[in-house]
Measured scan of single mutants.
Amino acid sequence: GATAVSEWTERKTADGKTYYYNNRTLESTWEKPQELK
């Protein structure tokens, strides 16, 4: 079946920190989402 992984995108802030952005829920998080573990 379909997985939720594609909803999350790994992004970088202007100062180079990595965060994760969810295209479906429009939420962002510093922690790696469960779906990516």
Score class of each variant (00 low, 15 high):
A14Q: 11
G16R: 01
N22H: 03
Y19T: 01
E7G: 08
E35N: 08
N23I: 15
T25D: 02
L36R: 06
D15I: 03
V5G: 11
T9Q: 15
E27R: 04
G1E: 11
T13M: 05
G1K: 11
R11S: 05
T3V: 11
N23F: 08
T9V: 15
S28I: 15
T25Y: 01
T13P: 00
Y21N: 01
K32Q: 11
E27F: 04
R24E: 09
E7Y: 07
G16W: 01
L26Q: 15
A4T: 13
P33D: 02
Y20N: 00
N23G: 09
A4G: 11
S28D: 03
Y19K: 03
E31S: 06
R11M: 15
W8G: 01
P33H: 02
E7L: 03
N22R: 00
E31V: 10
T25M: 01
T13W: 03
N23C: 15
A4V: 15
T3Y: 06
Y19D: 02
T18A: 05
Y19F: 10
L36H: 08
S6N: 14
A2H: 12
K12V: 13
T13G: 07
K12T: 12
Y20P: 01
Y21S: 03
W30L: 08
R24M: 10
A2S: 14
R11H: 14
A14V: 10
L36S: 07
E35P: 05
P33I: 02
T13Y: 04
N22K: 00
Y21A: 02
G1T: 13
R24N: 09
Y19I: 05
Y20A: 00
E10A: 04
T18D: 04
K32Y: 07
A4S: 13
N22T: 00
L36E: 08
N23H: 12
P33V: 03
T18S: 08
P33Y: 02
G1I: 13
N22Q: 01
E31Q: 08
W30H: 05
G16D: 04
R24Q: 10
T9R: 09
E7P: 05
T3K: 12
V5T: 13
S28V: 15
W8V: 02
S28A: 10
T9P: 00
Y19P: 01
G1F: 12
L26T: 10
L36A: 08
K37D: 14
E27D: 04
R24G: 06
Y21V: 08
S28R: 11
W8F: 02
Y19S: 02
L36Y: 10
E31A: 07
Y20S: 00
K32V: 13
S28T: 15
T3G: 13
P33N: 02
T18H: 04
T3F: 07
E35D: 11
G1R: 11
K12Y: 12
R11D: 03
Y21R: 03
D15A: 09
S6W: 07
S28K: 11
W8I: 02
R11E: 07
V5Q: 13
W30S: 07
R24Y: 12
T25G: 01
K32P: 09
K17G: 06
G16L: 02
W8H: 01
T9A: 08
R11P: 00
T13K: 02
T29H: 06
Y21F: 15
Q34H: 11
G16F: 03
T9Y: 08
E7W: 04
V5L: 14
A2E: 14
L36I: 09
E31T: 09
V5W: 11
G16T: 00
D15Q: 07
G1L: 13
T3E: 12
N23L: 15
E31I: 12
K32N: 06
K12Q: 12
E10I: 06
L26N: 14
D15G: 07
E7H: 07
V5S: 13
G16K: 02
E10L: 03
K37L: 15
N22Y: 01
S6V: 09
Y19G: 01
